[in-house]
Structures are given as C-alpha cells and as structure tokens.
Design a protein around this nucleic acid. Structure first.
Length: 556
RNA sequence: GCCCCCAUAGCUUAAUGGAUAAAGCCGCGGACUUCUAAGCCGUUGAUCUAGGUUCGAUUCCUGGUGGGGGCACCA
C-alpha cells in the first residue's frame, strides 16, 4: 500500500514538473492524519516556485480517483498530504492474514542473497559471557529478518578454542585441581588463571609457556585438559542455544584457522602486507585507517591473521555467499574496518561482495559493571537461570517448564532488543524480572490472552468472519497494516528494535480494545469481525515475536 | 595526542529532516459481580551547551562540556 501511494505521488510530481522527486510516504504518528502521509508538497514547493499548500492542492487534484483503495486525500498543516484508506481495505487485510498467517510480513526482497551471519563466537573454556549472550540475541534476530525477506541464511559460530584465554583456563585447572567436566569449575579455573596472570609474574610466564605448548600440542597432559574443558564448554553452549532457540549451521574453530591464516598472510607480504619490526603488518594508513599486526615478531598469527584464514574456510563451505555479516561488541569496530580493507585487497570475491560488521553495545548492570575476568560473576547462564526462577513463580495457567523457560528468554531478549543495535545497554535485573509494562512477557501475555478469547468464542459458536465490519476501523486494525513495512524497515536499517516497538504498540492497542469491547459476545452482530481482528493480531504478534527469536505460548 | 561512538522526563528507552517528541518504570488517582489483572483508564514530567544549514532540526554541520571505546605484536 505504501508502495502504491509512493509510485502514484512520484508520477504526479513528475507530471507537475519535478525532475527528481524527493519525498517520503510514512504512517503519521497521529491517527487523525489518516493512514499514510507524504511531505511531497513541502519538498517540491521550492523547486516549483510555489507555496507548499498550492503544490499540495495540485497533488490532491491530480491524485483524486487514481488510487482505488484510498477513501480520501486531504491537506493538513504546512502542506502535508494525508491519505485515508477505505474501510473495505482493512477487512481484506484481515482476510489475507487469516488465510495465510505464516506469510504475513514476509517478502522476497532478498530472495537472491545468501547471507552468512556470524555471531555469539564465545571463548570456550569459560562460562558464556553476557556479551556473547547479547551478540547471540541480536545476531539471531538478524538471521530471522533476512529469512523473512526470503534470503538463504547461514548461521555461523566462530568459537575461540586456543590462545591466552584457554591457556589461563588450563593453567587454572591444573592449579585448582578442578574437574574439567564441570562448567563452574572451568569458570573458577579461568578466574584463578586470569588473576595470577595479572598479579604474579612467575605465573604469567608459566601461562605463556602453557599457551605455546597448547599451540604446539607437545604436552599431552595439557592438551588433554584443554580438550576436556572445551568439550564441556561446547556441551553447555549447545544447551544454552537450545534454551535461546538458536542453532548454528557451521562452527569453525579458531584452532582450525591459525596456520592457514598465517600462511596466507605470509604469502602476501610485499603486495598486501609488509614487514615492520619483524612483524607482518597491514598499513591501514593508505586507506585512512591504522596499522595492525597480522603475524607477530615471534611468528604467531594474531586475531587478524586468524580471521583471514577463517574467511577462506567460510568461503570454501559457502562459495555462493553474497553478503557476510559479523556481529560483535562495538569495541571491535575499528578493527573490522582494517580487517575488511585488507581482505578486499587480498580476496577478489570479498572485493565484490558485502562485508559488514554489526557492532553491539556493552551490557552493564545497574549495580555496576560485569566482567567474568574480574570475578564479579554474572554470566549469561546465571542471568538466564535467575529469570527462569522468577518466571516459574509467576506462571499460573501453564506449568509447562518449557513455557516458563520461554517467558524467561522473552524477558531477556526483549530487554536487549528494545535498544537500538550498538547502543550500550544498562540492564536492570529487577525490572527485567518484574515482567511488567513493556516487556517480552507482556507481548506473550497478550498473545496467550487472545488465544484464550478465541477458545471462549469457539465455545459459544462464534466463527471468525470479516463480512460484517463495524462502520469505522478500530485503531488496532490500522496498526496491523504497518507490519510488513516495519519488518522491511527493521531489516534495511539493521534495527530490530523497530519490531519491538511495533509489537509493543500493537499489543497495547489490542489490550485497550480488549478493555473497551467484548469480543466473544454471541449477541453482538460484529462479534465474528472482532474475532477475526483478534486472531489477526495474534498472528501478527506471533510473527513479530518469531523475528525477535521469542516464542509465543498459547497459555501462561 | 589522534580516531570512532554516545548525551532525550527522577530512572530505563523510542522517534527514515516533518505535524502536539512516544512508551514503560516510579509517584498519585480510578474502573471492573463481564472473554486471562503479567491487564485497562486518568495524571505530573524531557531533547547537554553555543552557533550554523533548512520552509521545518532530537535528527545534518562546526565549536564547547560530559561519558564510553579504539589506536602494532591480546581477543
């Protein structure tokens, strides 16, 4: 519908003599301004040498009668042109939603793309950090937005299974005698190792030696501890992904790419890379960036070289990729600028396709910072566990443990996805645990409430039907129409929070409707229409929640 | 020192250059013997600062102040 109006307005402006029409068609914030509005007259007025209102009047005169689904076109304010849709358009929309609920909101705009999305990427050998959890939640919502646009999406995980973090953990395990099959013991071992590394010079030297041994694989005892710890970490990660509703299509480990990356970098010395102070570096200054080390003076590959190797493995697995997205914390923003510049010089395929870094913000608690390195231990999993305990206390209608879990996950995901991607998140546990007001559980509750009303309606033999609509559309109905546009905008702007905001607004509008109107009233001639509307809202909420990676329970 | 990001109500957050800046929390006050009260209704309250561009600026540009991140052998 938005597209229909945009096309018509563009054509009319051209007919009026505007060479390059520049305007937007949007949904006005105020319902009184109709269903769609355009600023076309304001933007075109100057070029035409006329007043905005005069241009608006010409626009209205030209457009009248050309849009079959538009009831009226009016001029308001300084020269906005407002479009109000015909009543029947909304009934048609409800019918469309009820007939193909799974399709509502989907498009084919990315049907020709294969998108590789890399996210989560934790350090194995310690409990999942809260930052990994943020990345997982945001990354997953991106995969779903792309899937909704018809793209082929591959979910990639790139865990760190070698390096200083692992060495600290292995050293710590040996020092504490902890059980490598216990995830908490791994966390404890890591903290012990990290503390020693920062405060004890002798221990630091030992840990560095452990690190070299692990790379070389020349100490069976250490390598065995590493392998067992990693197995424990991976098993735990799988469990958490199950709870979060995520999975990965491909996992590539840091240890697989180290040597590969190093060799590629070495072979490109003199062309892409150069030697400097015995290290191999990429001089980012030539493209307005900064220099970074890819291979150290000791001949070890850095994260940079590993990412080069990583890229070649990704490409080998998915040669038809068109778009590669990496989701990480925003502290790596500058790093990826340099890495991508180097990759575009190095790989012809990378030069012609899209490499994109999506930065996520830092999550801090209202009670202070969190860091698993410093031992103030709120991990991703401990946070989830707390939320699940609270959810189980509050669940009344359903005692299904899966529903309880889904509610806890919803609370967490909503709290993270409501922010604009990349902005820092101040997480208030009390607020998330309260499940009141704008929240994941609020959306789920609204969904479950509608399911319950539908059940009641069935019991009194009311069937959904759009044949007898009330004279004026309800506010909820108008809101429904925006859903596909919101999904498209959220993808284009990399902004899942728009889906969060929309779903919350929709739920709120429905709850107001619910408070004002009786839906399942056998004596009400409009009951079948109201039921159809309620069901359409439920489908829309369910689809919006799906995009956010949140389950929509039937009862709670 | 250089580079990047950020600053909206008491708190946590929204707002493709557009109309009266939108919610939730907190506070106060309501409705309901009626479909799920995790709900609904009412109410107080905000764009860091000085300029600039624009018909129009929370949004774009410049300076200032305050905060976060990054800047060669960590990831």
């Amino acid at each position: 519908m938005q597209q229909e109006i945009t096309t018509a307005v563009a054509a009319t402006l051209k007919a009026l003599g505007v060479a390059e029409p520049h305007f937007v068609v949007e949904r006005p914030g105020d319902e009184a301004h109709g269903d769609y509005a355009t600023n076309a007259a304001l933007t075109a007025a100057k070029g035409l040498g006329k007043s905005p209102r005069a241009v608006a009047e010409e626009l209205v005169a030209q457009l009248s009668g050309t849009l079959p689904r538009v009831e009226s076109i009016t001029i308001a304010g300084p020269g906005f042109v407002n479009f109000t849709l015909k009543r029947a358009v909304f009934a048609e929309m409800l019918l469309q939603i009820l007939q193909a609920p799974e399709e509502w909101g989907r498009s084919h705009s990315k049907a020709n793309e294969t998108v590789l999305i890399e996210y989560t990427s934790p350090n194995l050998f310690k409990p999942l950090h809260i930052g990994n959890l943020v990345g997982n939640i945001i990354g997953e919502s991106f995969t779903r937005l792309f899937e909704y646009a018809g793209a082929t999406v591959k979910r990639l995980n790139y865990p760190s299974d070698i390096g200083l973090t692992v060495a600290k953990g292995v050293w710590g395990l040996r020092s504490t005698g902890g059980d490598p099959s216990n995830i908490d013991a791994l966390g404890e071992a890591y903290r012990t190792g990290n503390h020693a590394y920062e405060n004890d010079a002798a221990a630091k030297a030992e840990i560095d030696a452990v690190n070299r041994s692990l790379y070389a694989g020349n100490d069976p005892e250490l390598s065995d501890l590493r392998a067992r710890g990693i197995a424990t970490s991976r098993a735990r990660l799988s469990e958490l992904c199950e709870i979060l509703g995520t999975h990965f299509d491909t996992e590539i480990f840091e240890s697989e790419v180290s040597e590969l990356g190093k060799e590629i970098v070495k072979s490109a010395v003199g062309s892409v890379f150069e030697e400097s102070e015995n290290a191999i570096v990429y001089k980012g200054e030539k493209v307005g960036l900064h220099t970074r080390v890819f291979v150290t003076s000791h001949g070890l590959p850095t994260y940079e070289a590993k990412d080069i190797g990583h890229f070649t493995l990704k490409e080998a697995r998915y040669p038809d990729w068109t778009h590669s997205i990496i989701v990480t914390g925003n502290e790596q923003t500058e790093y990826f600028k340099v890495l991508f510049a180097a990759m575009k010089e190095l790989f012809p395929t990378a030069a012609n396709r899209i490499l994109e870094h999506v930065p996520t913000g830092f999550l801090t608690l209202t009670t202070g910072k969190m860091s698993s390195r410093k031992g103030n231990v709120l991990t991703g999993e401990s946070l989830l566990e707390e939320l699940m305990e609270e959810a189980s206390e509050r669940t009344t209608k359903s005692h299904d443990p899966h529903v309880t879990q889904d509610i806890a996950v919803a609370a967490l995901k909503y709290e993270i996805l409501r922010h604009s991607t990349g902005s820092n998140i101040i997480f208030d546990k009390e607020r998330a645990l309260s499940f009141e007001g704008d929240s994941g559980p609020y959306l789920q509750y609204t969904h479950a409430r509608i399911a319950s009303v539908e059940e009641k309606a069935g019991a009194v033999s009311i069937a959904a039907d759009v044949g007898n609509p009330p004279v004026a559309p309800y506010q909820v109905e108008r809101l429904l129409m925006a859903f596909p546009e919101v999904i498209a905008a959220a993808l284009a702007e990399r902004a899942p929070q728009q889906v969060v905001t929309y779903a919350t607004t929709l739920a709120s509008a429905f709850n107001r409707f619910y408070g004002e109107e009786k839906i399942a009233d056998p004596a009400d001639p409009h009951a079948p229409y109201k039921l159809a509307l309620a069901r359409a809202v439920r489908h829309t909420l369910k689809n919006a929640l799906w995009v956010l990676g949140i389950k929509a329970p039937e009862a709670m």
